[in-house]
Design a protein around this nucleic acid. Structure first.
Lengths: 225, 225
DNA sequence: TTTAAATATAAAAGGTTTTTCATGAATCCA
DNA sequence: TGGATTCATGAAAAACCTTTTATATTTAAA
């Protein structure tokens, strides 16, 4: 379990750091908000402990930026500001817990553990969606509008790849690499045939066509009409 | 959004209840722990606010029982006990947050919203595991120990059904109902053949056999050695 | 130990999915 | 417009997965 600690008070930081280490966590420490943000973006942490008053970038702005990038790391805010409005603001900015200084280390530890416990089991969503097209990766159900679409395994993988890259053109080489695991050009038109079969099921009976050919390049699954 | 409030102090309860209603939540209120437990088990809530000192069943025991039944509803503990050890105990019992009375309603609301925000996106796990056998329902990867196992679609479904019922015997009729969608007896030995092929891949090269035949009944996937 | 029932397994058959191949349609550029 | 390139598509072939069939093995009870 890896924890990111963003705290400028060196004494407090090393106190927290050693305590967490003893509890079995791997701790990385940043002394200012900007460094903390970079570290949080660069590496996957299981939780973060963030002070509010920080040089270069305050803790709330740090959290705000993380959340705007869809980073959902659980954050415990540490702060000397104990007023209700400060606490409410911290939680509303995207913090998951708010602890006021001074605090007992055992409570900090328990709160971090509760955050991680709660977060484990979270995961990327099972369903991908573009427009009226939905695919559930777990049940393998695919629907367009209200009607169910039956896909064969390969068609399913192909559509998944297109949806994951919706809005962007993917080349046939890319498709072959990801869907067929070919990393050379086997002089075959499997991709064309696959797309053709997929269109048959996904686009044929619908006004708006989702799969568009980009001549000389590849295919796009259109995001917006 | 539905919230369960378990609180015996009527004055406080109606204060919280009306506040949450104003904030757009649907609130159900239980006056004692036992009722609260029953309600939490019977209905799906998005969060619970639980007092510790309660008649008939205290709040911590309530949470303990919920967690032992794999109920992961986010719980905010409300308590007059403000010592560090009480707070730590509350979180370690399975609470997700701990707020001491008296509190500002706006903080309670912010904390509930943070809990719900954090919990949304949670879901049943993608991976099933028994012993050294792991199956990822999303990627469809199956491994035993460190080696990957390639399964055909039907074998995958069969193993999934066995794992979900690990430790319990499942009859061939049950297997046919769930894996083949037959709800009559089609006088066939598909199940035997399926189990045979599965054993070939899952058990053959391993010392400890996971799939055990229960003669005259069906099969079990063993949970413990 | 013998016998009958239940289960295991190999191999063939059957059905489905995927690839290849051949041809036709669309698009681009001179 | 004509020719070349690229893409679409139907049909045959190949590969693959599932079921059936037939036979062997195991197990439990007499």
């Amino acid at each position: 379990m890896r924890i990111l600690l963003v705290e400028d008070d060196e004494t407090l930081a090393s106190f927290i750091e050693s305590g967490l280490r003893e509890a079995g966590f791997a701790v990385d420490h940043a002394c200012d908000g900007e460094t903390g943000l970079h570290m949080a973006v660069a590496e996957p942490y299981d939780a973060a402990v963030v002070d509010i008053m920080l040089p270069r970038l305050d803790g709330l702005s740090l959290i705000e930026q993380l959340r705007s990038e869809k980073n959902n790391i659980p954050v415990l805010i540490l702060s000397a500001k104990r007023s209700v409005s400060d606490r409410v603001q911290g939680l509303q900015t995207g913090g998951d817990d708010y602890l006021t200084k001074p605090f007992a280390f055992s409570e900090l530890l328990a709160r971090i553990q509760a955050l991680i416990r709660r977060n484990s089991g979270k995961s990327e969503p099972h369903t991908l969606q573009v427009g009226d097209l939905t695919m559930n990766l777990l049940t393998r159900n695919v629907t367009r509008g209200r009607t169910k679409i039956d896909l064969q395994p390969l068609e399913f993988s192909l559509l998944e790849y297109l949806i994951r890259n919706a809005g962007n053109v993917v080349t046939k080489t890319m498709i072959m690499e990801h869907v067929w695991d070919y990393n050379f050009d086997p002089q075959t038109n499997v991709v064309e045939v696959g797309v053709c079969r997929l269109r048959d099921k996904v686009d044929k009976n619908y006004e708006t066509k989702l799969i568009r050919t980009v001549r000389g390049v590849g295919y796009v699954l259109e995001k917006e009409t």
